[in-house]
Design a protein around this nucleic acid. Structure first.
Lengths: 360, 360
DNA sequence: CTTATTGATGACAGCGCTGTCAAATAAATC
DNA sequence: GATTTATTTGACAGCGCTGTCATCAATAAG
């Protein structure tokens, strides 16, 4: 049976429920908050009344009376639309589940006032916790202030994985290594690498992974093959310029994100270089873009939604330590990636030093 | 001077401000809410105290005491990441300005329970108003329920522009017409059109605009040149298939959004059809994608952020009729578009019936 | 100067809920 | 059965603010 309408006096309050269940409002409150020391029979009666009246507690009253915060902030400096959307949906889902609201806070990570702004935000909106996405998750001064404020926060994919505090990461280094190995398996030896924005933690780790792969395959790391990008399409264009003008062009380029890979691809088209026949290009992130460009990009999928969800869970585990159904979380969580092989990489043309292994 | 810390007793309350300014809390409240009947001198004194103590009213207390809602809901069924991000940022900015919170509600516009869900949301979270993005803005049953609920809502880009109620639109029809005319000016006569998802209002209007342009240029509308897409990249692929297999291929294709244009472009590449030399392709929306594919897409920029902002303003104009600094809004608002000419369209190869006008 | 009228201010209740603490009841102990 | 102890329940204050209404000062009218 749907909601029973009472005499048109606005929303159902806790008093109505209490009256209907024949208990005091305090008892209703207890049931609602999963507090102990309520007899099972009473609990059931209350729950039924809640159901029947379609009662929902007033969040304002709750947070006022309980002096508790039920808003989680999400501070981000838009790295890309799809990244944000994914983080958003992951976080939103988890927040709903745990009965938190999510407050978005777009910001500029280079703004020297950022720590101050965030502090304001936390105080003004009485945030319970905060989620930081890269590159905000790497603003040292902000982290310092946050620590000092003693607010609970989780960083998503921070550079520094040694510092205490909550974070959720993906193994970027291993991912980049695997991607590079994929290229090497295809037979490439001369593999260009486009580094990401130096302020983004992932850039570091991805470059390391690239080095790891070359090293373990006995390939020298050549300076001219490594260029500094900024994670943007335009920077991909520029880096492509440098890489493709080399006297001996690389046979493959690993751009450390899809936007830059798209830039290089774009440039290759302009130059009439056929991809992947003459040049393999791979990206990283598996953004929607990577399926859409031609040829579609071989890339690496990051579980962004899952990371955001895990971030919320980390937070909730701290904020409501005895929350039902939430296991003890390690303060750090590492999620899995997945290599997505599409069409932008193939074995190198003629001059490849060594053919791909065919022991498979 | 930065915030003055008081004796560590938690956040600053209205009482502190009242004491500091030497007035009653009610007067402070008046100033805060821009109510009349406060002497200018008093007002200034209060404002100074607020400033000095860095006081921010507690939103929970406010909405509880004032029995007022200060949350605006945003119901969307993700048409695309960039669309959402833009709507989000536009709405977020305006909400901040007017002191509202924005509550995101991703949903499935085909879910028959949608009206019910939204109703729940409105009641549970005590929403002040609601913003609907396409295609949610066209779910008839939902609109009916909303009207009945007497909640204030704005539709962004709804199909039906005759029905009463608030909405913000762009002139899709004129935009599509202009785009088609652009192609015609380039010399194209045989122009393919890829319709958008039939449930999205824009699809209709854009097709109308295409027809308008052909008609006014004295070109017949050919059935085989008009194919039904779904606004997705994949559907672009399929539609491209149909269009490019025609015995007489169109010299240009107007896809009614960028994703589909990218699909056709992708396919053209696969088929070895050179774009734009052999085939011009234009899109619609100016998504980030359109700059990134090769060749970059000639497209049409929609002021999505501005539309979202306008939507919030519409809402606020109704919700707080005497809000300072907000002019009376017409219940409908139409924003401007902009043709973005990039590289994916040029004059047709040889057989174009008429060369482009060169009276310019 | 008195009285009506308006403008400026404050006292106080109460929004719907939770925290505290006391009361009532049930269970365990002697 | 009486007493102690644990469990369950409720009365009540109060979170920080706004709405109502009374008060008081300032100005206009008689």
């Amino acid at each position: 049976m749907p909601a029973v309408k009472r005499g048109g006096k606005g929303p159902v309050t806790i008093d109505d429920v209490a009256a209907s269940a024949g208990v005091s409002i305090k008892t209703v409150s207890r049931v609602l908050n999963h507090e102990p020391n309520v007899r099972e029979a009473t609990r059931a009666r209350v729950r039924q009344a809640v159901e029947q009246l379609n009662y929902r507690p007033n969040p304002s009253a709750r947070s006022l009376a309980g002096n508790r915060a039920d808003i989680i902030g999400l501070a981000y400096d838009n790295p890309s639309d799809s990244y944000i959307t994914n983080v958003l949906h992951g976080a939103l889902g988890a927040c709903q589940e745990f009965d938190y609201s999510l407050l978005l806070n777009p910001c500029d990570y280079r703004d020297p006032c950022l720590p101050q702004q965030i502090t304001q935000l936390i105080e003004n909106r009485r945030l319970a916790g905060l989620i930081l996405t890269p590159p905000v998750s790497d603003v040292a001064e902000l982290l310092r202030v946050l620590d000092q404020l003693e607010i609970t926060y989780v960083s998503i994919a921070p550079i520094d994985r040694e510092r205490p505090g909550l974070y959720v990461v993906m193994n970027d280094r291993a991912g980049a290594r695997d991607m590079t190995l994929h290229l090497i398996e295809l037979g490439h030896r001369r593999i260009g690498f486009v580094k990401g924005h130096p302020d983004h933690g992932a850039s570091h780790h991805r470059f390391q992974g690239y080095c790891d792969a070359l090293r373990q395959s006995g390939i020298a790391i050549t300076d001219e093959l490594v260029v500094q990008g900024m994670f943007s399409f335009e920077s991909g264009l520029e880096c492509g310029e440098r890489l493709l003008c080399l006297t001996t062009r690389p046979t493959a380029v690993f751009a450390s994100n899809d936007d830059m890979a798209a830039g290089i691809l774009h440039l290759a088209h302009q130059r009439g270089i056929r991809v992947p026949e003459e040049l393999s290009i791979v990206g990283y992130d598996d953004t929607p873009l990577s399926r859409v460009v031609w040829p579609s990009l071989t890339t690496l999928r990051q579980p962004i939604q899952e990371m955001a969800r895990a971030a919320v869970e980390q937070l909730v585990a701290i904020l409501r330590p005895n929350h039902a159904g939430l296991k003890a979380h390690a303060p750090h969580e590492t999620l899995r990636y997945e290599l997505v092989v599409r069409q932008s990489a193939c074995p190198p043309p003629a001059g490849a030093r060594r053919p791909p292994r065919d022991d498979a």
